[in-house]
Amino acid sequence: MSESFTFYIDGVPVEAAPGMTILDAAQAAGIWIPRLCWHEELEPFGGCRVCTVKMNGRSCAACTQPAEPESVVENDSVALREWRKALVELLFAEGNHFCMACEKSGSCELQALAYRLGIAAPRFEHRWQAREVDASHADVLIDRNRCILCARCVRASRDLDGKNVFGFTGRGPERRVAVNSDARLRDTDLDVSDRAVDICPVGAIIRKGVGFTVPIGARRYDGAPIGSDVESANDELESANEHTEGGAAATVRQEE
């Protein structure tokens, strides 16, 4: 049994137990580190790299990197915000994300992150890749246009549902989320009640027929920007963060 220790995120002392990742320790201390593929119920994956921080001057994924005693972590800096912004923008450029007609709009983690990071217009050329929709299942639909390859469905199906419905196929820009059958979701043992269905951060895996039943104003991020739930756990830090991107993101949202 080892003792807990202290390390520093942007100069703020943070307590951590041995083996805890930087992201977990930050989370417990009410410090939000932006992320997409991380989910509290799942093993860390380190795929999206949006949680990139610098530990003792060296960049690493906060979701997989264990915290170390007395280490100095840079999180909310101009340089890191720019890196994260670029990573998220690249996801928009790679997929086909038409927020205006997407039922996940307002509740989508990718969109919410874009608002919070202050992404107002595309910077990178869109790839406009042809991607497939799998509507074969009676209750669940896969729209690969919106998939960001976070592997949450892959991990949830394997680790939470014990089913292995999802996996990846292809390499590089051709990488796609695949299902555990020849081609169609209806031929797998996926059930609409599986955790893998609701854990998608974007609109890639959706329940059929739900659509736009949640009105504007009641959607997940209509009230407060992404990450504010973590930050509100620590009032002191929340007031310190007031002058960062959070306020700007809220303004952008209203004009959407």
């Binding site: 205006m100 007609a101 059929k208 027929g209 659509g211």
Partner: peptide
């Protein structure tokens, strides 16, 4: 074509 039906009211108004 190929889009789910419940998207139509929101998609086509664009």
């Amino acid at each position: 074509q190929g889009r789910p039906y419940w998207e139509m009211p929101v998609a086509v108004q664009r």
